[in-house]
Amino acid sequence: MATAKSPPALVGWREMVGLPDLASVRIPAKIDTGARTSSLHATDIERFDRDGQRWVRFLLDLGQGRNEAVTCEVPRADRRIITSSNGEAQDRFIIRTRLVLGDYAFRAEFSLADRSDMKFPILIGRTALKSRFLVDPGRSYLQSTRQERKLLKSQG
């Protein structure tokens, strides 16, 4: 694994990422330096208390046409006003979870939002990218495995 002091790695405008605390499969993500906060496509979002702590439960879309979602439960969910790409302010739950992108594994913040009208179920924003990655907007899947790239190429 790369460390925080490693030089920034190069990523494409889309990558396969892991969320090992939430799902056992890798999920397609759009890399977006225009977005401050990263976002997950989540539905059926509900807040609850467990052992005196705030938790949130939601269904996580796994993308790539998979007709399945994973039920996730995450502690210490906060709420924040996030301005969406269309300029609309939305009150969203914010979670922190491990993100794996290439050789990097680190905790990142994600807002939970309905991204059903978006092509990618995950958006990686500039806060998660900062000091870790440089983005080549003309390339894709630079930090994804050779097997993933081959599978993605065969899908069109």
Rank of each mutant, 00 (worst) to 15 (best):
T3V: 10
A4Q: 14
K5W: 10
P7M: 08
P7T: 06
A9D: 13
L10D: 11
L10S: 13
L10I: 14
L10A: 13
W13S: 11
R14F: 01
R14P: 00
M16F: 12
M16Y: 11
G18D: 13
L22G: 01
A23K: 14
A23C: 15
S24W: 10
S24F: 09
S24P: 15
V25F: 09
R26I: 13
I27S: 03
A29L: 07
I31Q: 03
I31A: 02
I31T: 08
D32R: 02
T33I: 05
R36F: 04
R36L: 05
S38K: 01
S39G: 10
S39D: 03
H41Y: 00
A42E: 06
D44Y: 02
D44G: 11
I45E: 05
E46N: 10
E46K: 10
R47M: 09
R47K: 13
R47W: 03
Q53R: 13
Q53L: 10
Q53S: 11
R54L: 08
W55K: 08
V56G: 05
F58Q: 08
F58P: 03
L59N: 12
L59Q: 14
D61V: 04
D61P: 06
L62Y: 04
G63Q: 06
G63S: 06
G63Y: 04
Q64I: 09
G65K: 05
R66P: 12
R66A: 15
R66V: 14
E68C: 13
A69R: 09
V70C: 13
C72Q: 07
C72Y: 02
P75F: 08
P75D: 12
R80W: 02
I81S: 12
I82V: 15
I82D: 08
I82M: 07
T83V: 15
S85C: 12
S85N: 10
S85H: 03
S85L: 05
S85A: 14
N86W: 00
G87T: 14
E88I: 07
A89H: 07
A89I: 05
Q90K: 12
Q90L: 11
R92G: 03
R92F: 02
F93A: 04
I94L: 12
R96L: 04
V100P: 02
L101W: 02
D103N: 14
Y104P: 00
A105Y: 08
A108T: 11
E109L: 08
F110Y: 04
F110G: 02
A113K: 01
S116P: 03
S116D: 11
D117Y: 00
D117T: 09
F120H: 09
F120R: 02
G125C: 12
G125S: 13
R126I: 07
T127M: 14
A128H: 00
A128T: 01
S131Q: 13
S131R: 15
L134W: 08
L134G: 03
P137N: 04
P137A: 10
R139F: 04
S140I: 06
Y141P: 02
Y141G: 03
Q143L: 14
S144F: 07
S144G: 06
T145Y: 01
R146E: 15
R146M: 14
E148S: 08
E148Q: 15
R149G: 11
K150W: 02
K153H: 10
S154M: 06
S154I: 09
